[in-house]
């Protein structure tokens, strides 16, 4: 019964964590804008947390470089299973405008598995909310 309770809560109220992995801030401020009164993702039960050990969904913005790839991997490993990863913005998907730079490895999926891709440069808050809701489908199947 307890398992069922957790499974339902996870799908109803996912806790998200945001990690900026070398983006230009455009997507980051749009992620934050999702939390503010106009877009207000809390009405879907989404809560922003700062600790990877509490998080169900990881939002990653921006390109991966050599140094933050280790941090990203570390954060991903600290999150408890089951977990979802959403890559946001053109940079998070493929490297975007920076893909030829010498210090850029490419998109987020070079380092960790990604469940949902949200395109846009920068992605609009509506698109990000849609991405989070799509990622919830993964948790729906795990309902007890």
């Amino acid at each position: 019964m307890f398992k069922k309770f957790i499974g339902n809560s996870r799908a109803k109220s996912p806790w998200i964590m945001h990690f900026d992995c070398g983006s230009c801030n455009g997507c980051d401020i749009e992620v934050l804008a999702c939390l503010t009164p106009l877009y207000d993702v809390e009405r879907f039960g989404v809560v922003n947390v700062g600790n990877p050990k509490h998080a169900d969904v990881l939002l990653v913005t921006g390109t991966v470089n050599h140094r933050n790839a280790k941090v990203l991997r570390n954060i991903y490993d600290q999150m408890p299973d089951p977990k979802g990863v959403i890559a946001i913005g053109a940079c998070g998907l493929s490297g975007g405008v920076f893909r030829e730079c010498y210090n850029v490895l490419g998109g987020v999926d070079k380092v960790i598995p990604v469940d949902v891709y949200v395109p846009g440069c920068p992605a609009k808050p509506e698109a990000i909310i849609d991405g989070v809701v799509t990622a919830l489908a993964k948790f729906e199947g795990l309902k007890g």
Binding site: D20, C21, G22, S23, G62, T63, N65, R67, N68, V71, V97, F98, E100, C101, Y102, N103, V104
Partner: peptide
């Protein structure tokens, strides 16, 4: 530093 370094001046 260096977590966001992309090197875009090179572009």
């Amino acid at each position: 530093l260096g977590y966001v370094h992309r090197g875009l001046e090179k572009l």
